[in-house]
Design a protein around this nucleic acid. Structure first.
Lengths: 217, 217
DNA sequence: CTCGTGGCGTTATAAGTTCTAACCAACGCG
DNA sequence: CGCGTTGGTTAGAACTTATAACGCCACGAG
């Protein structure tokens, strides 16, 4: 068992079609947003009629969570790849920005408006942890002149999310700041809120990144 | 003319019904998200049947942009109210957070996932400018030890978005940082990304706010 | 006070959507 | 070689947005 290579022909065909469906789904999402994802439209564009897709996905929500899972996986991979190539925190930031610009709707699928009832499956939070570990490593490698903040005390006793990572509280705080600040700039940029404002979003991103990689508190 | 008080009874009834429709729309959005907004459901809950609502709104999109407009208006009002009560930048931050927590979906209607094709109407960007002016005033009142950053040079020559506000570049940069950082924390918090992490989002918000109101670069 | 007009609500209908049910073909494993 | 799982089909229910056509009634002008 466990030889993923030469599987049964039925199985191969199944995964092939699933992949093709997701391909079309991504195109549709990229051009009209996740709310416009239509199983019917995908089916028609694949030459088959409506309910056939239900052999491959339990429903619209199932397909959507599958895409979300892939998005998380994709970001985790680019993060790990960047870290593996010796990228520091700034390198991670640039990898993140490139990945986000590559497909804004994929970014929003992860970090955009949540559906009130929706609960992400467990494995997604596992991948999120993976991402956080890479980020924590990069922040720990950054030598910071240990300027402690009042929040650090709270963090010291609430560090479950670090999943056993040995970094001290200021590093944890830096990781949180990296995450929220980069997301703040990126999400507003991708949403077009900087559009009519005239300044260069890339330069502002760099400016914020600068302040994060400095050693001060 | 121009006495908004005693209008014609038809007019009064119309605005009354419009307001009631929006009321139901907000409840529906708050409980199931903007994508679940259904004109039919609203009509039924108001005791009238389907297409009647089209007398009041051109369609789903029209109602949605009206709600977005109201959301912007609401945030601008709370900002102006806070500033009018002598709130400083920290006061504005707390007003913003309170306003966001009050109705997360309203926040996401403004700053959440954008629909690729959608273009906000002009008056919305006007209100956005109003908000920015209040923010710029608060940032200008903050005495900062004028630590210039390389990005300031770029800002100096790209300050159209400040709409004539006389603040120097470091103040503009501070305003942008306030906007993006507060949004970064708030949007992730409201989207539930901090949920399983254990730390107190309010304290982290405060920590980030601290760093913004300090005078350093 | 009467009358006509315009705003409001109604049903009917078209064109979408998701998703279930029932049916059939065909592939491939034992 | 057969039989069963798998994949595709059409039909249909329950939704949705949105338009069209029709009637009612209230308001305001004369």
């Amino acid at each position: 068992m466990a030889d993923t290579g030469a599987k049964a022909p039925r199985e191969r065909y199944r995964t092939q079609v699933r992949s093709e469906i997701k391909q079309h789904a991504w195109e549709q999402i990229a051009s009209a947003g996740a709310s416009a994802l239509s199983l019917n439209a995908i089916a028609k564009r694949m030459g088959m009629s409506g309910p056939a897709l239900y052999r491959y996905f339990a429903g619209r929500d199932d397909l959507l969570t599958e895409l979300i899972r892939d998005a998380y996986r994709s970001l985790a991979d680019t993060f790990r790849a960047a870290a593996g190539s010796g990228a520091d925190l700034a390198g991670l930031a640039h990898a993140l920005r490139g990945w986000a610009l590559e497909d804004p709707q994929r970014y929003f699928l992860m970090y955009g408006t949540p559906v009130p009832g929706y609960q992400a499956p467990d494995d997604v939070t596992l991948i999120a942890n993976e991402i956080m570990q890479v980020l924590l490593d990069a922040c720990a490698a950054l030598e910071l002149r240990d300027g402690r903040a009042p929040f650090d005390e709270h963090l010291e006793s609430h560090r479950e999310w670090a999943a056993g990572h040995p970094a001290p509280a200021p590093v944890l705080r830096r990781a949180l700041a990296f995450w929220t600040r980069m997301h703040g700039v990126l999400s507003l940029e991708l949403a077009g809120h900087f559009a009519g404002m005239g300044f260069d979003a890339a330069l502002f991103f760099e400016s914020e990144l600068q302040e994060l990689t400095r050693s001060g508190t």
